[in-house]
Design a protein around this nucleic acid. Sequence first.
DNA 1: TTTTCATATGAGTATTCGTTCATATGATTG
DNA 2: CAATCATATGAACGAATACTCATATGAAAA
Lengths: 126, 126
Amino acid sequence: MEEDKFVCSEICPHFNKINNVKSLEPKSEEYQKLSNMFKLFSDETRLRIICSLLKEELCVCDLCELLGLNQSQVSHQLQLLRNSKLVKFRREGKQIFYSLDDEHVELIIQMALNHILEEEKKNGRM
Amino acid sequence: MEEDKFVCSEICPHFNKINNVKSLEPKSEEYQKLSNMFKLFSDETRLRIICSLLKEELCVCDLCELLGLNQSQVSHQLQLLRNSKLVKFRREGKQIFYSLDDEHVELIIQMALNHILEEEKKNGRM
DNA sequence: TTTTCATATGAGTATTCGTTCATATGATTG
DNA sequence: CAATCATATGAACGAATACTCATATGAAAA
């Protein structure tokens, strides 16, 4: 790893830039947490579950019905979301109702959606 | 797939909820684009590259130096970012300079970072 | 208290994805 | 035009992860 960490002779290393960036960037622990968070959004199934819960509290079975997924699939994904404290749940008889436990999620997804939609508009015009 | 798409007898399907959610949620094509976008942020290496480019235009070699990665690794990740139009680049002699080609990226990461930091604060207090 | 229903979970498998190594490309320099 | 330098790319391998199937749990109903 260290052996091929080359620096392109004398031309390239823009050390002023590099030091500038170094001073501004998040700490490495934060990078890990950030990427873990984005990982939760990166699977389409999970994302659809999250977006569904944005609007309504739903039970596992509702999610299966809504998304056309089997129960095991939904429960496994919900487990991941639970572990990351992104969703909360309450029991009501035999059913368990899930809802989002985070105020930022909606904003983040909305931003990303804005990006997508603008991208579409841009490509539509060219 | 279809066979085990059960609906928990008569109790569960909260069809009014389900229909409400259905009417509000993004279209399935958008889900795919959204998850693809988040996938780009979900790898720590890629995320560090993105965050570095947030501040400065940098050449491949700068990124290697800055992040302690080998050239192949950086180029492969840049290829993914290029394919998704998240970065742009310009050639200057032998070097290629990359920069971000998107205004939303910074906002999205900032939101997520807010989330992380608040989470930390919350846990610190308990 | 046995059965049923909604959900959770573990193991196994298939697939996706990141890294590495080797090599290619394309611009510059001698 | 041969050599060198910065970067790109393809193939192979390994690790991570999503899905499936089978089974467990825990509440309610019979």
